[in-house]
Amino acid sequence: MTTYQHHGKHFVPDEWTRALAAARDRLPQLHGTNTRYLSAFLAGALDKVDGTYDYRSYLGLALLRLPGTDQAPGTAVQQLARRDRLHAILLTDLIAFELRAAHNVHTPLPLMRPAPAVAAKRLRHAMRAAMPALRRLSLVEHATDSSQVTALRRVVAAVSMVLTDEDRRALQVSMLPVHTVHDEWLFIRVLQAFETTFALLATDLTDVITAVSAGQVPRAASRLAAAASLLRESAALWPLMATIQPDAFHAFRTFTEGASAIQSRHYKIVESLCRAPGTARLDSPAYLSVPEVRTAIMHGQISLDDVLDAAHQSPPDPALGAAVREFAAAISQWRQTHYRLAVRILGPERNGTGYTEGTPYLRDARQESVFHHCPSARPDGGAEI
Score class of each variant (00 low, 15 high):
residue 148 Q to Y: 05
residue 154 R to D: 11
residue 163 L to E: 13
residue 150 T to C: 11
residue 163 L to V: 09
residue 145 D to E: 04
residue 153 R to N: 15
residue 151 A to T: 11
residue 161 M to E: 11
residue 161 M to W: 03
residue 144 T to N: 07
residue 138 S to L: 14
residue 138 S to P: 01
residue 158 A to S: 07
residue 146 S to I: 12
residue 163 L to K: 10
residue 150 T to M: 11
residue 149 V to K: 13
residue 138 S to E: 05
residue 156 V to Q: 06
residue 147 S to G: 13
residue 165 D to L: 09
residue 139 L to G: 02
residue 152 L to S: 03
residue 151 A to N: 07
residue 139 L to C: 05
residue 138 S to C: 10
residue 159 V to Y: 00
residue 156 V to M: 03
residue 150 T to H: 15
residue 154 R to A: 15
residue 162 V to Q: 14
residue 142 H to Y: 07
residue 157 A to M: 08
residue 137 L to G: 05
residue 151 A to Y: 07
residue 154 R to W: 13
residue 166 E to G: 08
residue 138 S to M: 09
residue 146 S to G: 15
residue 142 H to L: 10
residue 137 L to W: 01
residue 162 V to T: 06
residue 153 R to W: 13
residue 164 T to M: 08
residue 153 R to V: 02
residue 143 A to S: 13
residue 145 D to A: 10
residue 159 V to R: 00
residue 155 V to F: 02
residue 144 T to Y: 00
residue 162 V to A: 01
residue 147 S to M: 12
residue 158 A to G: 05
residue 166 E to K: 08
residue 142 H to V: 09
residue 160 S to D: 10
residue 164 T to S: 13
residue 161 M to C: 11
residue 146 S to R: 08
residue 156 V to A: 00
residue 156 V to E: 00
residue 147 S to I: 09
residue 159 V to D: 00
residue 167 D to M: 03
residue 153 R to M: 14
residue 153 R to G: 12
residue 167 D to S: 01
residue 137 L to N: 00
residue 137 L to Q: 04
residue 138 S to I: 01
residue 162 V to Y: 10
residue 163 L to I: 06
residue 145 D to N: 12
residue 146 S to H: 13
residue 159 V to C: 05
residue 139 L to H: 03
residue 155 V to C: 03
residue 141 E to G: 06
residue 149 V to R: 14
residue 153 R to T: 15
residue 137 L to T: 05
residue 166 E to R: 13
residue 144 T to V: 13
residue 160 S to P: 03
residue 140 V to H: 01
residue 146 S to L: 10
residue 148 Q to N: 15
residue 137 L to S: 06
residue 143 A to V: 12
residue 157 A to Y: 13
residue 156 V to W: 00
